[in-house]
């Protein structure tokens, strides 16, 4: 059985706008990936634990509430504590360009802004995790 790419899609924080998260989840599924969807209102602890238990390759976080500078670093810290720093993290949402830069500096693999083509996200993941 060939290796499958496993992706966790989650919405940290309190905002409920899940259109983007679900569109991306659908597109990745249609691209043949296995999507673990944990849904709305997730705490960093929930996300990190789910990512570890599910042994995903990559975690996608969608935030539109402006809490990104709190959420991303906290989740990365927790993953490290759990011995899962190898899991990549990407994100999307309403995130100003300078914050995108800061997040990429601390190790977030990529932030996709509004208007992103889902094909770009598929390519981004495939490049890092080719199916064998």
């Amino acid at each position: 059985m060939a290796r499958k790419v496993r992706v966790l899609i989650a919405k940290p924080g309190l905002d409920g706008h899940d259109r983007g998260a679900k569109v991306v989840a659908n597109a990745l599924k249609d691209a043949g990936m296995e999507i673990i969807y944990t849904g709305l209102h997730q705490t960093p602890e929930m996300i990190a634990e789910s990512a570890v238990q599910e042994d995903v390759d990559i975690v996608g976080l969608s935030i539109l509430s402006g809490a990104h500078m709190t959420m991303f670093p906290r989740i990365m810290e927790l993953m490290k504590e759990k011995g899962a720093e190898h899991i990549l993290i990407f994100g999307g949402g309403i995130i100003p360009a300078e914050d995108m830069d800061k997040l990429e500096e601390i190790g977030v693999a990529r932030i996709f802004g509004p208007g992103t083509d889902t094909g770009d996200i598929v390519t981004f993941i495939r490049e890092r995790f080719p199916e064998e």
């Binding site: 989840a25 599924k29 249609d30 691209a31 296995e34 999507i35 969807y37 944990t38 849904g39 929930m46």
Partner: peptide, 13 residues
């Protein structure tokens, strides 16, 4: 597509 949507964790929060 070979893809899958695994959503059971939502209910096990």
């Amino acid at each position: 597509t070979g893809g899958a949507f695994l959503g059971d964790r939502i209910r096990m929060q």
